[in-house]
Amino acid sequence: MAAKLNDSDLLELMVLDDVSAFEEIYERYSKSMFLFAMNIFKKKEVCEDIVQNVFIDFWAKRKKANVKQLKPYLFQAVKYQVFNHIRNRKISDEDLTRLIIVDISMSISQKLEFDELQAIIKIQVDKLPTKCQQIFVLSRFQDKSNKEIALELGISVQAVKNQISKALAFLRKNMVLEEGVLYLLFLTSTL
């Protein structure tokens, strides 16, 4: 059942001590977190330790942490563990250089891609019908849950889901960029 839930629902369950929700989060993100760490360290054991430390801390702080977006939170935690590793002098100069290169190159290229994508998405979102646009913005740009949106607008959760589906279908259809590349970053995320 946990595999079908979105990140927000999993976070809510985890705060209530639901171990299966925590396990699902681990299954979804641990591999990509490990690969992110491997891009910096190239040492399997260190990267495994970093990911484990992130999840140990995450579980321990589950009731206190105010996590809005799960994936960015987890990857920021990996980065924090990396810097802890550096601070504790457990990293070579070569690893430190690789970290700086990875961080700078990812930051620049991701920023450029993000800015370009954000501009294109804004143009397309502005073409949505008013209610559909409003719901999509609340969901994707203000990170509100379907339930929060439904309460705020006085409509059913199903109506919110329908409008998000409508917006996603429109955006998928109209988000074709150069050379036919279709950007589906958050367009494919769950309702």
Rank of each mutant, 00 (worst) to 15 (best):
Q76V: 01
K127R: 13
N162R: 02
K111V: 00
K144M: 14
L74T: 05
F136Q: 06
K166V: 00
A77M: 10
V54K: 09
Y26V: 03
R87Y: 09
D115Y: 03
L168G: 00
R89T: 08
V137C: 03
F186G: 13
S139M: 08
R87G: 07
M33Q: 08
S8M: 11
K147T: 13
K79V: 10
M38C: 12
R89D: 13
I108Y: 15
T188P: 01
S105Y: 03
Y73V: 10
W59A: 05
S189D: 09
Y26P: 00
K173W: 08
I86Y: 01
K173I: 09
D115R: 01
V160A: 08
M14R: 04
T130S: 02
L182M: 15
F114H: 06
I155T: 01
E148W: 04
E12L: 13
D126C: 03
V102M: 00
K61W: 14
K161I: 14
A2D: 09
D9Y: 05
V19Y: 02
L187W: 10
A77Y: 07
E12H: 09
K44F: 10
M38W: 08
V46I: 06
A60S: 11
T188N: 14
E116Q: 15
S189R: 08
K44T: 11
I101S: 01
Y73G: 10
E179T: 00
M14H: 07
D9P: 02
R87I: 12
T130E: 09
N6M: 15
E148Y: 09
D17W: 01
K63G: 01
S145C: 15
L5F: 14
D9R: 13
A2Q: 07
T97R: 10
K122R: 04
L74C: 08
Q142F: 15
P72C: 04
D93L: 07
V51H: 03
M14W: 02
R98C: 12
K166A: 00
M33V: 10
A2L: 07
I108T: 15
F75T: 13
V176R: 08
Y183L: 05
M1P: 07
Y73D: 07
E116G: 14
V82F: 07
Y29F: 05
V160T: 04
A167I: 08
L171N: 06
K4E: 08
K71H: 14
K64E: 09
D93E: 10
K63H: 02
V176T: 06
A159I: 08
K111E: 08
R89S: 11
K68M: 03
Q110F: 11
W59S: 01
Q52R: 07
L16G: 13
K173L: 13
E148N: 12
V54E: 02
E48Q: 14
H85C: 05
Q81D: 03
L35N: 09
S107R: 13
V160W: 09
